[in-house]
């Protein structure tokens, strides 16, 4: 391999390098980090955010943003607990479709449309639940369970969603169109791409992925809570951006997002192991997000 392709490889995997360094530092300070059970835990902790962030990747690559994923996850889990899991998925996709319709046909900025949905979906969750947590059924509980002692299903689901996301982004026309729409919407339109219809599907996908993440979370906890996944949208966005996607659209990859979600999970886990007080944890996480974004922008120069 020539020096150029090595450099290219390293720069394309800047987030991965960051993840490894982070893991190394934590492992040196607290060897228990490398304990197999702990590593599995990290994976499970990453799963919910990762699945949500995969859906967010579609939206961000297409030049948008989805602030409603946390609320949609909670609504889907609650509807799932009150009726059945698949209904929850359906509701999530529907919420996404509404986002897409407001954005493409109502011409609302994505920030506003999904901010409205953040409130509506959370409100509906509170209404349906009457403010109480509800137990999940067998199917949903199974999603959060372990197939074998060291084989948590959430981890496998995360990997499955990772594969599907990569396939959609790189191997489907919908994926190719996401990059075109996010890179230059006008050029995409003039090339015959039905921008509005594609946006509908993109936001629907994000809603569906958020719903899946909500079900996994509820399954893990054994119940759907009215305040579940509050604020998760910010973690999802952070994972996507740490993974190297650009909020101005046209750039982003499934691997990046996976690494981004893992960075967040490793960091939280490490801070807990190191017994950093929770208030300080927030500060550290914020600093790491800023650093990641900064490194990325330096690399692009």
């Amino acid at each position: 391999m020539s020096t150029i392709s090595i450099r290219k490889y390293a720069s394309e995997n800047g987030a991965l390098a960051g993840l490894l360094v982070l893991a190394l530092v934590i492992a040196l300070m607290q060897p228990a980090f490398l304990n197999a059970q702990n590593l599995l835990n990290v994976g499970v902790q990453a799963a919910v955010i990762a699945i949500m962030a995969f859906g967010m990747t579609f939206v961000v690559v297409a030049g948008g943003i989805d602030l409603s994923v946390g609320s949609i996850a909670a609504l889907a889990a609650m509807v799932g607990a009150l009726t059945a899991g698949p209904v929850g998925l359906l509701v999530g996709a529907l919420c996404g479709l509404v986002n897409g319709a407001l954005i493409s046909y109502g011409k609302l900025p994505p920030f506003i449309a999904t901010l409205a949905m953040l409130s509506v979906a959370r409100g509906l969750t509170l209404v349906f639940s009457e403010g109480q947590p509800h137990e999940t059924d067998e199917l949903v509980t199974f999603l959060g369970s372990n197939l074998a002692p060291s084989l948590p299903l959430p981890l496998l689901l995360m990997l499955a969603f990772f594969g599907v996301t990569g396939l959609i982004l790189t191997r489907t026309n919908l994926g190719r169109r996401m990059y075109a729409i996010g890179g230059n919407e006008e050029a995409a339109k003039l090339s015959g791409i039905d921008v509005r219809r594609n946006k509908l599907w993109i936001y629907a996908l994000s809603g569906l992925f958020a719903a899946a993440a909500g079900l996994v979370l509820a399954g893990r906890l054994g119940s759907a809570g009215p305040q579940a996944a509050a604020g998760y949208e910010l973690d999802a966005i952070a994972a996507v951006v740490i993974g190297g996607a650009s909020l101005s659209g046209g750039v982003g990859r499934a691997t990046g997002t996976l690494v981004g979600a893992l960075v967040l999970a490793v960091l939280r886990n490490g801070l807990n192991l190191l017994q950093v007080p929770p208030f300080w944890q927030q500060v550290v996480i914020g600093v790491v997000i800023a650093l990641a974004a900064l490194l990325d922008s330096l690399r692009r120069r």
Binding site: Y179, G183, N184, E186, A187, L190, G192, S246, G250
Partner: peptide, 19 residues
């Protein structure tokens, strides 16, 4: 402004109409 997706590759731009 209207012809190219600057964030994409040459090939991705060429195939845009004939996806």
């Amino acid at each position: 402004g209207q012809g190219l997706v600057l964030t994409a590759t040459v090939g991705q731009n060429l195939e845009l109409v004939t996806l």
